[in-house]
Amino acid sequence: MAKLIAAAKKEGTLNVIALPADWANYGNIIKDFTAKYGIKVTSIAPSDSSAQEVTQIQQKNGTSLAADVLDVGGSVATASTSLFAPYEVSTWSAIPAGLKEATGLYVGDYGGYMSVGYDSAKFGTITSLSQLLGSKFKNDVALNGNPTQANAALNGVMMASLASGGSAGSIANGVNFFHQLKQAGNFNTTQATPATIKAGTTPVVFNWDYLNTAAVVGQPASTWKVFIPSDATLGGFYYQAVNKGAPHPAAARLWEEYLFSQASVGGQNLWLTGGARPSEQVAMTSNGSIDKTAAAALPPVVGTPIFLTQTQATAAATYLAANWQKAIG
């Protein structure tokens, strides 16, 4: 570890990509990493998608501008392993087997549950997704992105599917739910962002719970509520990967060690503070290193969590490619 730190300090710089400052507490994570090791972090294209991250390293590898580390969704991670270098962090054993590629090509870092964030001052309490079809939600319900492009949006449609009798293997009921939502005039097709929420345009948002917190969307915690349906508890993880052609290979590995560190101020607990659920949460709860206040502040999860397998995610994307536009156009 001391040797890794010395080598990383010598490189002096780390290139990260597609990490918005208000996404899972990344703003503070980057700041703390720099403060701790004196390594400058260059944040490339914070609002890029996972697919664009891979394109960036394909185009920029061989230059000092390529991203050293990636934070990508499952579909992109499994499809791009030829670009990754395997790396096992020192806390490897604390990460559940289902969340890591066996040789460490990609490793689940943090995740959350699909949720509905909403302005309770305007709508009262929401207890089921079918309520959203009612007339008081005219033009109010929005997704975070287009489900044929964005992971968060695809999972939003999948949550609606699970809540209306669908299964992880079939997203059709979810597409039908959004069709009804559109027919009722309730589906707002603008992409929900903190800016549209602030403007009052998208007061009901389907998104990962860690992106739906009152702090992230800039709303008062007293009125902005986050609801995870008990009949559609859909979880999803993001994955860390090290670029095989990383211009700063030691800094990249030190960054991974930092992100998976169980220290009180380390990657795992900082993600937790940002509302995301770190992959070592179970191990950290049993060894007592978890930030208990932050863990208690997470929105409650009642139902049995469902995680999409790669086959299920691909089937959902294929169905959306053929049917989404027709259902809501």
């Binding site: 697919a51 990508v72 997704l143 287009n146 489900p147 492009q149 691909t314 959902a316 994307a317 959306l320």
Partner: peptide, 24 residues
């Protein structure tokens, strides 16, 4: 920025073919 859910015009379709992170 106006509308995000339907690829009404060709530049939006091109965008989708470049940035889709769900495998499309």
């Amino acid at each position: 920025a106006w509308e995000d859910q339907v690829n009404y015009v060709v530049p939006q379709s091109i965008g989708g073919s470049l940035i889709s992170e769900v495998g499309l």
